[in-house]
Amino acid sequence: MNNITIEQTGMKFQCDGGDTILSAGLRSGLGLPHECTVGHCGMCKFELVEGKVEVLWQDAPGLSERDRSKGRMLACQCRPVEDSRIKIRLDEACRLVRPPRKTEAVLSGMTDITHDIREFRFQSDTEASFIAGQFALLKLPGVIGPRAYSMANLANKAGEWHFQVRRVMGGSGSNVLFDRLRLGDRVELDGPYGLAYLRTDAERDVVCMAGGSGLAPMLSIARGMAASGMMPERNLFFFYGARQPWDVCGEDYLKSLPGFGATISYHPSVSFPDEGWNGRTGFVHEALQDVLPGNFADYEYYMAGPPLMIRASVELLTGHHKVPLGQIHFDSFF
């Protein structure tokens, strides 16, 4: 157990053996800046003032050459090996209302959603506590470093965690899930994390934009809207961007929600259509222009999917349509 002191405020928190500085800080209820928690987004940069840390992933893409030359490190990739003092800018908006906890979870069910996306359902002894749109870290056997997967379901006392994972070519995490893990196998689950969660108090219609395995958190947002009583007052426009027709998914889940076809509408688009596809073609951000009535700045946006989809969408919304960044929610895994 090592103590971490935050230079600017003098606040202290404890970091036990396995925890990174980021996880330990969030567990203790501090607003350490973060999005992905797995080395990509670059939000949790800090400077080590005193002490010593072990760096888990030296080449994490969240740090630029410029950051490295200034001696910066990522809190999600560092474990303290002695008491340390760090310089990091706390942000109340990054404090997790439900601090992440580690628990053991058993693989209890699987369902194929498309040819390469499968739902994996895990069961923990403790309740599944999270907000719609958040994710958890899974420590999988034989995989170095945890993998972040978003929950597709809602918080529940029964301890059910539903993830929808896309098989990635050469992706060690997804390959272990698809090929090695058997029903009844145990994994370590750490969560919830993530800031792209459903804002039930936002008085705007909602747009969900999903691509690839971004389906899960957007489905959770949709389910959360239905469960929280936001509907029928708020409309939900759900967009799914697929590469090919056989990648299109999500509608079956949405259909089971009250209000589908009225307050909830589903808009798939395919970027590489074949002759059999007679729906919308092109990228998901292009579909917004055809579908959304009125002013783009009057909506709350949630998105999850490939970096290109998110970048293009944010550029379109903030640049051309002047949507405030505060109305656009996503966790950057790039």
């Binding site: 670059g42 740090l63 970096p307």
Partner: peptide, 29 residues
């Protein structure tokens, strides 16, 4: 020629708007 955001140390090249450091990913106009 590189400006660094005071929030999360994301950085841009002010001559081109290109992103130099995360967490920024959308270029600067």
């Amino acid at each position: 020629g590189i400006v660094e955001c005071p929030f999360h140390q994301g950085a841009f090249d002010v001559r081109t708007g290109k992103v130099v450091s995360a967490p920024c990913s959308v270029p600067l106009k």
